[in-house]
Amino acid sequence: MSKALIIDDEQQMRRLLRMVLESRGYEVCEAADGQVGLQEAAFHRPDVVLLDLGLPGMNGIEVLKRLREWSDVPVLILSVRDQETIKVEALENGADDYVTKPFGTAELLARLTVIQRRRFTRQSAEIVVDALKLDLLHHEASLNEAPLKLTPTEFALLKVLAEHAGRIVTQNQIIRQVWAGQASDPSEGLRVHINHLRKKLGDTGPRIVNEPGIGYRLEE
């Protein structure tokens, strides 16, 4: 049974989330502010954290930074703020994904499942996302069992997206991993290669979805 920690200052929200999560078999603990949240995280060792960004006192970003000093527990950001910069800041400080309030329960549960799964990947040299297979050992890709011809940059790009399949990856995270400061205008190069990848993946492969101002998500 998975343990979930809810850090949110709205009591009603915590109560509802508890009901939703418990009905899906989660064991739930909760905290109304960041300080208590960090203590609860240390004490209960949850499998996943739902963190509200707009906390009183220590704000959500600060909580996240402190948590990341000693824990790599998957963190899902809950926020009513729809400003992209805040989301990007959270993601680049170690959050795994976000949902914007108001959110649908189905969306919330799907995100939780995806970010928890991340712990169990990386046990083999192969990444599988639906019909897409990446062989990290031989740097080969295949789609529906047919080989997929990719340039080294395209392969590196697709690898980053596939490792985070179903999760958002910020533009900066992608650029850092694929280009590592080589390109003069990496944002432009990124779009060009995403464009190529989309054409190669066609309609049968997983879709690369853009979230404006944030980054990309490989949708299964």
């Binding site: 939703v20 009513v80 703020r81 309030k101 108001p102 959110f103 189905a106």
Partner: peptide, 18 residues
């Protein structure tokens, strides 16, 4: 203000999903 206005809407949404 955004927080105060959107929070109840979010709560209603989640409760309705339930």
């Amino acid at each position: 203000v955004a927080h105060e206005l959107k929070t109840p809407i979010a709560i209603i949404r989640t409760a309705l999903d339930g």
